[in-house]
Simulated scan of single mutants.
Amino acid sequence: MNKIILLILVTIFSSFTFLRDDEVTFTAKIENRNSDTLMFKGGNQFSKIIIADKKGVFKSTFKIEEGFYQMYDGKMYVQLYLKNGYDLVLNMDAKKEYQSITYKGKGADENNFWIKSLIDSQNYDYKTLLSSEEKVFSKLFEERKVEVLASLKGKSLDKIFADNYSKETEQSLNGLKAYYMQTLEAKKLSGSMSPDFNFENLKGGTTSLADLKGKYIYIDVWATWCGPCIAEIPFLKEVEKKYEGKNILFVSLSIDRVSDREKWSKFITEKELSGIQLLAEADWKSKFVQDYKINGIPRFILVGPNGEIVNADAPRPSSPSLIELFDNILK
């Protein structure tokens, strides 16, 4: 769950950029590094690769648009704030990940604050928050909101950084609240009969939910442009292999636009995806998607042999609780 929260923060902040003059100098000293290259991604399709020198140090000077960026070291992502004029030095032990990150030089204050906020998000008990009754959730949510925003007080940080951190953190927390409300709605659906669908099948023709009656159906609502969806693919493959021949079918329901059918088809072929591959006829506006009140993906749904909803918000393939669930129902 904490990874979901981090992903919400990453997605929002990485889109903010502001034009500045001159350049930024960035240096990284990484123990136990995962690769000899660092890749930077940011707003306005910014992309840059820095290669380690003979001493294993990464260093480069380049023009940047002020904002939040993602740095990928071959295994993990690090979010940082860059601004022209910064002379920023990152120190990290890749084996210890976020906990080991410290910054020195110009721009260190903003980035040390930022990494501290990410670690705080990792350590916060979002599981308890999201499993609370609605009244308790509202109380805990407001307390968390005040706590996060209050962390800026008394800090001498770049004004653009502080303003956007405040604004977008509030937005991300509101996204968390929307996720909670979606979960509540999903719980209300469990036990009722599932809405039907009749979507294009990659192998030809169309497939409806009624066509699959008689077995459990694990539905993955996803899209080729959805990073978290793609991250679940290796786990989904493992689960499909584990339960091959059992009384369960795996359906991947894409909400890519119909105009992107070729991209969808090519992605499935290249990634060697199995299961039943379907394409919704109206992406987010498809009746099945709206009946399940899906406003975020990936979303996993488990339907029973008679068409009843077992779980309208089922565990992800990467969650150990999914195996527990399947082992219980497929005895």
Rank of each mutant, 00 (worst) to 15 (best):
M1G: 13
K3I: 10
L9K: 13
V10M: 15
T17F: 14
L19N: 14
L19S: 15
D21C: 13
E31S: 14
D36F: 04
L38P: 05
I50K: 08
I50H: 06
K55N: 13
F58I: 05
F62D: 06
K63N: 15
K63G: 15
Y77I: 15
Y77W: 14
Y77V: 15
V78L: 14
Y86K: 09
D87W: 10
D87V: 10
M92A: 11
D93A: 01
D93V: 06
E97D: 14
T102F: 09
K104S: 14
A108D: 09
A108C: 11
D109C: 06
F113G: 08
S117C: 01
S121C: 14
L129Y: 00
L129K: 02
S131W: 06
E133C: 00
E134P: 00
F137R: 00
K139W: 04
L140G: 01
L140E: 06
L140I: 01
E147W: 01
L149Q: 04
L152G: 03
N164M: 11
S166Q: 12
L173F: 09
L173G: 01
L173T: 04
L176D: 07
L176V: 11
Y180C: 04
M181A: 14
K187H: 10
S190R: 12
S194P: 02
P195C: 08
L202W: 10
G204S: 03
S208V: 07
L209A: 11
I217H: 09
D220K: 02
T224H: 07
P228G: 07
I230Y: 10
A231M: 12
P234R: 08
E238L: 09
V239A: 08
K241D: 13
N247R: 09
L253E: 02
S254E: 04
I255Q: 05
R261L: 10
E262T: 09
E262L: 11
E272L: 11
S274A: 12
G275T: 01
G275Y: 04
Q277G: 05
L279A: 05
L279H: 01
L279Q: 01
A280R: 00
A280M: 05
K285T: 06
Y292D: 03
L302N: 03
P305E: 00
I309Y: 02
V310Y: 03
N311V: 01
P315L: 02
P315R: 00
S319H: 08
S319Q: 11
L330T: 01
